[in-house]
C-alpha cells in the first residue's frame, strides 16, 4: 500500500497514464530544495555533480529554478568511470549545452593511469570514483559539491546531513557530524575543506518520478522500457554489452527492461518492465517490492556496510 500519489478515482494507481496533481508534498519538497540550493550562493567554487542520471537531472532542473532568471552559479562535474552508457553521456552533454553551464569531466581512467587508483576484482570502478572525485575537487578547489543523493536510498545515507562537512582529506566522519537545526545550515569550512550538499535529501524515489512527470523533465531513454539482451543470474538481469559480454550465448534473452539507476555499466542491472513513460514508471515504483539500489546495484548488495565504507573514503 503505497498510494500517496492518488489518481482521481481514488483507486490504486493503474498502468495507464495517471494524472498526478501538483501535491502539497511536492511543493514543500521543491521549496526546500530550492532553499538549500540558494544557500550555495555564498560559496566561491561550487560544482553540481551531473551524471545524466535521473536524480541529477532533477537536481539540475531545481538549480535552474532556484537561480532564475540568472544561470545557476555552478559548474557541472561528472566523474566518468569510462563504463557509462552512451545514451546517458549524450544526454549529459546535451543538457550542459542547453543550460550553458560549463561541464567538467574527469575520468577514473586518468586516475588509473597516474596510479592513484588500482583496480582489483573486488573494487568496482564505481567505488574508484571517490578517488577521482577528490582529485577533481582539489584540482579545481571546489568548496562545495552538490549531489542528488537521497536519504531513502540506503541505510548509511539515512544519517547524512544536508550540508555535510568534509575535512581536508575529503573524509566523512559520521561521529563528528554537525547537528543540523531548523534549516539554519552551518556553511562554514576551513582551508582545504569542502562541503557536500544534498538538496534531494528528503525525496523518495516516488517523489522524484512524480516531480519528473509534473515538470516534464527529460531523461535518457534507458529509464523507459526498451528491448535489451540480458542474462538472468542471482536474481539480477545482467545487461549484455560490449563491456559485459555473455559467457554463455544460450543464456541470453531479449526482453523489455528499464533501468532504475544508470551507473557504471558493469555494476548496474535493469529490471523487467513495460513502462514506456514516466507515469507508468511511477505506477511501477509505487508497487515495487525491492528497493532501488537493492534491485540494481551489485556493489551495495555485497555488504550492507559497503556504502558507509565508501562514504568514509569520500564517495558521494
Amino acid at each position: 500500500m503505497r498510494l500517496a500519489y492518488k489518481t482521481d478515482d481514488d483507486g490504486p494507481v493503474s498502468g495507464e497514464a495517471a494524472p498526478v496533481r501538483a501535491s502539497a508534498r511536492l511543493e514543500r519538497l521543491e521549496s526546500e530544495s530550492v532553499y538549500i540550493l540558494r544557500e550555495l550562493a555564498g560559496f566561491e567554487r561550487p560544482a553540481l555533480l551531473f551524471s545524466g542520471g535521473k536524480d541529477s537531472a532533477v537536481l539540475l532542473h531545481l538549480a535552474i529554478k532556484a537561480f532564475s532568471p540568472q544561470k545557476p552559479p555552478f559548474k557541472l562535474l561528472h566523474i566518468d568511470t569510462g563504463h557509462n552508457f552512451p545514451e546517458v553521456l549524450a544526454f549529459r552533454d546535451l543538457r550542459a549545452r542547453q543550460t550553458g553551464l560549463q561541464l567538467i569531466v574527469r575520468e577514473v581512467e586518468d586516475s588509473i593511469r597516474c596510479g592513484t587508483v588500482r583496480l582489483s576484482p573486488e573494487k568496482s570502478r564505481n567505488a574508484a570514483q571517490a578517488v577521482t572525485l577528490l582529485e577533481a575537487q582539489q584540482e579545481f578547489e571546489f568548496d562545495a559539491l552538490i549531489g542528488g543523493a537521497r536519504r531513502d536510498e540506503e541505510r548509511a545515507r539515512a544519517k547524512e546531513r544536508v550540508f555535510s562537512h568534509r575535512d581536508a582529506f575529503g573524509a566523512w566522519r559520521p561521529r563528528a557530524q554537525r547537528p543540523e537545526l531548523w534549516g539554519l545550515f552551518n556553511r562554514h569550512i576551513g582551508v582545504g575543506e569542502h562541503m557536500r550538499v544534498f538538496p534531494l535529501s528528503n525525496w523518495t524515489e516516488a517523489d522524484v518520478w512524480a516531480y519528473i512527470i509534473q515538470e516534464r523533465i527529460e531523461l535518457p531513454s534507458l529509464y523507459y522500457a526498451h528491448e535489451r539482451d540480458v542474462v538472468r543470474r542471482d536474481g539480477f538481469l545482467f545487461p549484455v554489452t560490449s563491456l559485459t559480454p555473455a559467457a554463455d550465448e544460450a543464456a541470453v534473452e531479449r526482453i523489455s527492461v528499464r533501468f532504475r539507476t544508470v551507473g557504471d555499466i558493469t555494476g548496474t542491472c535493469p529490471v523487467e518492465s513495460e513502462a514506456g513513460n514516466a507515469e507508468q514508471v511511477l505506477a511501477e515504483t509505487l508497487t515495487a517490492t525491492i528497493s532501488e539500489r537493492g534491485a540494481t546495484r551489485m556493489d551495495d548488495r555485497a555488504n550492507s556496510a559497503a556504502m558507509e565504507r565508501r562514504k568514509v573514503e569520500g564517495y558521494f
Binding site: M1, R2, L3, A4, K6, R25, R151, D152, R155, A156, A158, K159, P174, R175, Q177, S201, N202, T204, A206, D207, A305, E308, R309, V312
Partner: peptide, 27 residues
C-alpha cells in the same frame, strides 16, 4: 533501525536517522 557500522562496532547510537513512509493520505 540499526545504524551505521561505526555505531554497531561501538555499540552506541550516534545520530538521528531519517526514514520515509506513506499512507493513502499523507507521506
Amino acid at each position: 533501525t540499526d545504524g551505521l557500522e561505526a555505531e554497531r562496532a561501538q555499540g552506541i547510537t550516534i545520530d538521528v536517522a531519517y526514514r520515509y513512509f506513506e499512507t493513502p493520505r499523507a507521506s
